[in-house]
């Protein structure tokens, strides 16, 4: 019995250790509870209410979710726009970053300078980047359209055309891949030299080495960058809001913008909370989907099953 009791309860020394441990992590625990757990749970509750901050919340059950899926026509636009951004923008960003990193991984003159140049966009604040691109895309004074006008050609309405606005924003996203490039560079430098040597002996050309050695060895990093990029893209807000505010004709009304509009312009915090929970579930679903789809395509060193 005595032995059983000792196993059931912690010894005084263990309890003291636990107490000390909790004491030392308590600042983080309190912050986590107050600034993460509570807001998450509160938003779940508010998503079931009609709440404008100024009046007490009124419980309405699943009405916000019902309205989102069955009545809100803008929500369908928003989903389409956001999926467009994710499905086209994420692969475009990942491919761009990987290709640039591969080029920068080669021996060349001024390599540190080029690496710095490609990383600089990651250091530029989003607001500053938006202002730069606003001028690049400017139809009267922008570099592209000025040249077109000078050549007697029609201008390109980058941000004024519903057909071109999303691709124009994706182009900015592709430009701002500095962080992903650095991550890919680290991954590329981890690829064992012996594999390239063995491929060379087998007669593999540059493309074969890239396709059969470089890419497979970098698949965990590609998966990581793709996942984080996808999550960020679903939450896309700053540059889109600054450059187009959802226009023209709602063509860039993305999920984050619509959520912000509902929360802070329409004072619909309950509805915005429901939107945020749907976004969370969408991101979880896409994450699971990508993990499942990539299971057999990602190489993890030391994992015999892969």
């Amino acid at each position: 019995m005595g032995v059983a009791t000792n196993r059931k309860f912690w010894a005084p020394r263990q309890q003291r250790e636990l107490l000390k441990g909790l004491l030392f992590v308590s600042p983080w625990l309190l912050g986590f509870a107050g600034f993460t757990v509570y807001p998450i749970l509160a938003s779940l509750y508010y998503s079931l209410t009609q709440y404008d901050i100024l009046r007490p919340p009124r419980f309405i059950g699943l009405a916000n979710y019902h309205q989102l899926f069955f009545q809100d026509e803008v929500f369908r636009f928003v989903l389409y726009n956001t999926l467009y951004l994710v499905v086209i923008g994420v692969p475009a960003g990942v491919v761009t970053a990987f290709m640039v990193a591969s080029l920068l991984n080669n021996e060349m003159k001024l390599r540190p300078l080029f690496r710095t140049l490609f990383f600089v966009p990651a250091l530029v604040p989003a607001v500053a980047a938006a202002e730069v691109w606003r001028w690049v895309y400017n139809t009267n004074f922008g570099v592209v359209n000025s040249l077109l006008k000078w050549g007697g050609m029609s201008i390109i309405p980058f941000l004024s055309s519903p057909d071109l606005a999303k691709p124009s924003l994706i182009l900015i996203h592709m430009w701002a891949q500095g962080t992903a490039i650095v991550i890919f560079l680290a991954a590329l430098q981890d690829v064992p030299r012996s594999l390239y040597d063995a491929a060379l002996v087998d007669g593999a050309n540059l493309w074969h080495r890239f396709w059969n050695v470089t890419i497979p060895m970098c698949t965990p990093t590609i998966l990581f960058v793709a996942l984080t990029s996808m999550i960020n893209m679903f939450q896309y807000f700053t540059i889109g809001w600054l450059l187009t505010e959802g226009g023209p004709n709602q063509s860039t009304e993305f999920y984050g913008i619509y959520l912000y509009r509902n929360a802070f312009l329409f004072f619909k915090m309950g509805y915005a909370s429901a939107l945020s929970w749907i976004l969370f579930l969408i991101i979880v679903a896409f994450t699971i989907l990508i993990f499942r789809a990539s299971q057999r395509r990602v190489y993890y060193a030391g994992d015999g099953e892969s």
């Binding site: 400017n138 139809t139 009267n140 309405p157 004024s160 023209p248």
Partner: peptide, 11 residues
């Protein structure tokens, strides 16, 4: 429409 939108947004 795109001409008008372009001009007003650029200026």
């Amino acid at each position: 429409v795109e001409q008008m939108e372009s001009l007003r947004s650029s200026t």
